[in-house]
Amino acid sequence: MTKLNQIELALAGAMLAVAPWIIDAAPYEATMGLVQKIFYFHMPAAWLFLLAAIIAGTASAMFLFGKKRDMDGWALAAAELAVVFGIITLVTGPLWARKAWGIWWVWDARLTSSLILWMIFVAYLLLRRYGGPGADKLGAGMALFGLANVPFIFVSVNVWRTLHPQTSVVPTLPVQMGGPLWFCITAFFLLFLALLGMRARLERQRVRIEDLYLAEDEA
C-alpha cells in the first residue's frame, strides 16, 4: 500500500466513523422521515458504482484499441469496485424503498438497468477468474457494454415514469441536508480512490509474479 493510499484510507475511515452523527443531525425529510437517511450512503455508493463502470470501460477501450497493457489492470480494479459499490447500492436501495414505496423492488428502467450493470461486472470478474487465455480481451469487450449502460441508467429516471427520485433532487436539497450528503460523498470518494489504487497495485504485483516465474523457467 502506498503512502497516499494509506492517507486516503485513514481519512475515509475517520469520516465514515463520524458520518452517523452528522447524518443524525440532518433534518428529517417531510414525507419519508427517518428511513430517508439511508440516502446519505445509498447515493454516494450509486455514483461510485457508475464511476467505477466508466473507469473500467474507458481503461478497457484503451487496452483494446490503444494496446496499452497496463490499462487492463486498471480495468480489472475498477470492475471489482463496480461490483462492491453496486451491491451496496442494490441492497441499500430496496431497504429504503420498502418503507418509502411499500415494496422492496420494482422492475422499472432505473432499477433494472442498474441490476444489469452489476451483473455485467459480476460476469466480467467470473470471466477474468475462470476464462483462461484470451479472457482479458473478451472481458474488455464486456466492460464496454457496461460503459454503454451508464448514460442509460443516469437519464432513465428523467425519461421514463418511475418511483425513483429524479436527478434534479440533489441540486435542490437544502443546506442542512446537502452538507451531510457532500460530506458522505467526499468520504466515499476518498475510500474509492484508496481502494482503486490498492487493487491496481495488486494487479501490477500479479504481473510481476508472472514475470518472475517466467524468468525462473527460462533460467
Binding site: 427517518l34 437517511k37 441499500t92 431497504l95 475510500l191
Partner: peptide, 25 residues
C-alpha cells in the same frame, strides 16, 4: 430497523473488502 440494516451492510461490505484486499496484497 431498515436504516440500521443499510448502514450495517455498508460497513460489513467495506470492512470485508478492505480486509480481503489487504490480505491479497
Amino acid at each position: 430497523n431498515l436504516v440500521a440494516a443499510a448502514y450495517g451492510f455498508v460497513w460489513i461490505v467495506v470492512v470485508g473488502y478492505v480486509w480481503s484486499l489487504g490480505r491479497r496484497l
